[in-house]
Design a protein around this nucleic acid. Sequence first.
DNA 1: CGAACACTTGACAGCCCTCAACGTGAGTGG
DNA 2: CCACTCACGTTGAGGGCTGTCAAGTGTTCG
Lengths: 253, 253
Amino acid sequence: MVNDKVAFPRVDPSILADDGDEFHFCSTCAFSQACMAQGMDKASLGELHMLVEHVGPLHAGDHVFRVGDPFEAIAAVRAGTVKTYIIDPGGREHVLGFHFPGEVIGLDGIDGDTYPCNAVALDTVMLCRFSFPKISVLAGRLPGLQQHLFRLLSRDIGRAALLAGDWTADERMAAFLVMMSRRLAARGFSADRFQLTMARTDIANYLRLAPETVSRVLKRFQSEGLLHVDRRELEILDQGRLGALAAPVLWKQ
Amino acid sequence: MVNDKVAFPRVDPSILADDGDEFHFCSTCAFSQACMAQGMDKASLGELHMLVEHVGPLHAGDHVFRVGDPFEAIAAVRAGTVKTYIIDPGGREHVLGFHFPGEVIGLDGIDGDTYPCNAVALDTVMLCRFSFPKISVLAGRLPGLQQHLFRLLSRDIGRAALLAGDWTADERMAAFLVMMSRRLAARGFSADRFQLTMARTDIANYLRLAPETVSRVLKRFQSEGLLHVDRRELEILDQGRLGALAAPVLWKQ
DNA sequence: CGAACACTTGACAGCCCTCAACGTGAGTGG
DNA sequence: CCACTCACGTTGAGGGCTGTCAAGTGTTCG
C-alpha cells in the first residue's frame, strides 16, 4: 500500500534543502532560470524569492497533493521524480506525467479551486512551493513573471501532443526515452545513463500501452543495440537511431 | 485547392458584424461572458472592448493565420467553425481542434512569437480579434482578466485529454459528438440537431482514426438508433445512450 | 456532361491487448 | 543465513479492433 502522508498542505518549514537558502535560488529552479534569462532584475527576483517555501524530503509513496485538495500553490521539483495521475471511475489509473528536477507541478489546478489530479513522489523528492495567490498578485506587477507563467501554461498544452497521436508502441517508447533524456540533460544530468524511476506499469499507463508491450519493446530495443537496460538502470547506446524512431512523434519539439 | 487568403494579419475594419457594435459585445463572446460572470465592472469591460477588432466574414478555405505568422493576437469565434491543424514533415495533416462560436483561438501562440499551427475557416466565419500585447498589459491592471486568461489556458490543457486516452473508435466518436453538442448548446444552438461543418476526413484526422472507420461507426450508430445522419446534417436521437458510450472518455468534464 | 472530390462499402492483414504462467529480486522474519 | 512472500517484470499464445488497400457510389462545380 502506498504511504498516505500528504505533504503539500502541511509544510514543515524546518526541513530545508541544502543548495538553496534565504538568498539564493537552487541552481536548477525553473523560475529563477527563466526569469533571469528574461532579464528580470535582482529586486524582482528577490520578491519572487520571498514567496518560496522549501518542502521535503518526501519519500517514495508520499503524496504532494491529491484530487480535491484546495488549490493553493504550484511547486518546482528540486530533486527526485513526481508522478501525477488520476483514478477513473472504473478504478483504472491514468498517469498524466512525470516531473523531474526543475519542472513545475500543479499548473493544471489554476482552472479550479482544487487540484484535478494526484501527485506522488516516486523516490526521494525535494520541492520549492509557491503560493499561487501571492505569485498571482506579484505577476500583476511584474510583466516578466506574468509572461513566464503564461509560457509555462502554454508549454504544457503542447507537451500533451506526445500522447495525442496514433503512434506505434516503438515510436511512443522511443519518444518517451528521448524526452526523458533531454529533460534530464537540460538540468545537468547525464543524457545517456539514467534511472527509470518509475515502474514499467507507470510507463505503460503513461504511454497508453500494456505493461507487457513496454517489456517487449525495451527487450527488442536492447537486442537491436539501441540501449542497455538492467532493471531500472538505463543506458542509451545509440541516441541517433533512437532519435530517428522518435522523430515522427517529436518533430515539433 | 484551398483559398490562400490570410485574413488575420490584414484586418479589414470596414467589415463589421451585426450583433456587436462600438458599445456592445456580441452576446456569445467568450470574454464578456466570463468577465461579467466574474464580476468585472463596466469600466473594465469598456477597456477590454477598446481592444477588440471585428474581422470577417471569412469564407470556407480562408486562413485566419498560418504556421510562422507573427503572434500578435488571439481571437474569439463569433460565427462559423474554425479548424486548427498542422502539417507534419511527411505531409500528413493533423487536426488539432475545431472552434465554435464563443471559443478562443490562438492561445497556443503565447509560448512563442509566431503561431504554431494553421487556422482555417470551414464555413462563413466572423471573429473578434484581441491584440495580445494590449490585452496582456491590461491583464496586469485587471486581476479578473488575468485570472480569465489563466483559466482559458489551463482549460485547454485538459481538453487534450479527449485524444490522449486509448479509447475505441466508438468511444472517440461518441465523445466527439457529445462534446460538439454540449459546446453548441452552451452558446444557444440546438443540442440535438446540428451540422457537421467539417469533412469526415477532418473528423478522422482529429480523432486519429481512418476516414473509413468514421464512416462505419456513424453508420452503425444510425442503425442502432443513436442518431440520424444525412451527409453533414446530424440529429442525435438518443443522447442518453450516446452519452453512456462517451462516458469513459468524458468522465472528467 | 465530365471531372474532381467526398463518402461509402468490402476484404484482409497486422499490431497490440488480453489472458495466463513463470521468473526474479527485495524485504521480512525466523 | 535461509525460507517465504509479494510485487514487479518477463515470456508465450491467441484473438479482436482498426488501418490499409481497392473499388464503387454520389454530389458539386465548372
